[in-house]
Write a protein that binds this DNA or RNA. Structure first.
Lengths: 255, 255
DNA sequence: CGGCGGGTTGATACTGGTCAAGAAAGGTGG
DNA sequence: CCACCTTTCTTGACCAGTATCAACCCGCCG
């Protein structure tokens, strides 16, 4: 079972040291199985982990730090697709095309474990339950992007921002990187605007309103949600996708 | 290897009959392995295959017909996330949460093969390469949604529409359901607007411009791209994600 | 024949973009 | 600890892409 290898990892304290977040079991499994301690790579803020147009045969398990996946358009505009938090796999989509179609760039210092796609796939033969867990992670990732698309496609700016902040709060809580109402993350207004498809000045104005209404405060790299209830009412956030059932329960249910 | 079972399926002509599209190998594999001929379900246009809020423990392989995945917001607005074409798996994300968070609804008559998630997962033990192929399909699906998000987030209406039509053309060609410049699909202006986050009247006006410029013509359920070059120039379409490498090639490459 | 889902149009409003510039804030070397 | 530079944040004036609302029309189906 998953718990064996996960427990195994937890014992190794040096490794645990910077494994601050509570990675999902799949991540711990992968770490144990692939001996990921060996090939870790560290990135500085703003470095590209995966670059659009370049070859890519590996996925990257984020162990520490934050990253974004995005595309730069012809006219120089940027659309950020999603945030990559500790425990997420980066580059999964990219590596299936041989050459990357999106760029993944670090937002902070980050520790990342590269896993060659071939190695991962070959593990399926010996550890089939790993595949199932990966699917589960994928499904969550897909849901995050889908919710994001809904926000960008159909919600006004204020709701989008509220939605984004609550999504991040919830996801970060899940990995132990946020407390009840706040988290640290270098969320510049430029980043927010590129995530949500807005302009920087407009994001600024909306943020001022939210601040004036005592709903959120972003100062430096600290994001504080001052009134979760009201902000949630604004955001209309789907909670299910951020708190998915453990895979075991899914398989035991009946149609 | 994958080809065995795929070839096996192709021989069965009665089954092949309505398997007009060239399903990807994974689909044919699944069909063979799971004996999907047995449990097929037929849907009429406008029926829900998966309903938001209801339990969901299966994925659905689309064998014939078209569907959309969407969410209805509080205020009644709809955001369509993606189109499901023959060969696509529907409900994959949903079934990982126990209860569906999106709705999948038929656009035409459709034939669908339900696959209990548990059944699929258990196959990984006996057919590990199936998992790898499913990942590949997933990656393509993710890329489609991601490109969609980019269009909605950062592109003006005309480009969005051009992008959408070319995406559909290319995807349909891949399964043998479109010729060089046209395809049939009940693409109402309401659907287009809900896919792209626009209003119906505006879609109408943009469509008129495109028609006036002899770029596209939508009449009834027939979509004809009259000038692929110009439309492509407009759309700035990423082709890579619609023509991914076969999985074998990916695994043989080196970092 | 009537109803209805689509498509089309016009008038009008507004959300959010653009441009331009300045003020803070944060980081860095001396 | 300060001067300086860069990044980020703010603000204002103005503009434009799209939304809304409200008809009306058309073709199809029962």
């Amino acid at each position: 079972m998953a718990t064996n290898s996960a427990a195994l990892v937890r014992k190794e304290s040096r490794f645990d040291q910077w494994l601050i977040p509570r990675l999902p079991p799949i991540a711990n499994d992968a770490i144990a199985l692939l001996d990921l301690k060996a090939g870790n790579r560290c990135f500085r803020p703003g470095q590209e982990i995966v670059s659009e147009g370049r070859r890519c045969n590996s996925v990257f398990l984020i162990l520490e730090g934050f990253a974004i996946r995005y595309r730069i358009l012809r006219d120089g505009q940027r659309q950020i697709l999603n945030f990559l938090l500790p425990g997420d796999f980066a580059g999964v989509t990219n590596c299936h095309f041989g050459t990357a179609i999106f760029t993944t760039k670090t937002l902070t210092h980050a520790t990342v474990a590269p896993i060659p796609l071939a190695k991962l796939m070959s593990l399926f033969h010996t550890h089939p339950q790993l595949a199932a867990q990966l699917f589960w992670l994928f499904a969550v990732g897909d849901a995050v992007v889908a919710e994001h698309l809904i926000a960008v496609g159909r919600r006004p700016a204020t709701e989008r921002i509220a939605h984004l902040l609550l999504e991040l709060l919830t996801r970060l809580q899940a990995v132990g990187l946020a407390d009840e109402r706040s988290f640290r993350l270098p969320l510049t207004q430029e980043v927010i605007s590129d995530v949500l498809g807005l302009s920087i000045p407009y994001v600024n104005r909306v943020l001022q309103q939210l601040r004036a209404a005592s709903l959120v405060r972003i100062s430096g790299h600290l994001v504080v949600v001052e009134n979760i209830e009201e902000l949630s009412a604004l955001a209309d956030l789907e909670q299910t996708y951020l708190k998915p059932l453990p895979i075991a329960e899914l398989l035991s249910d009946h149609a």
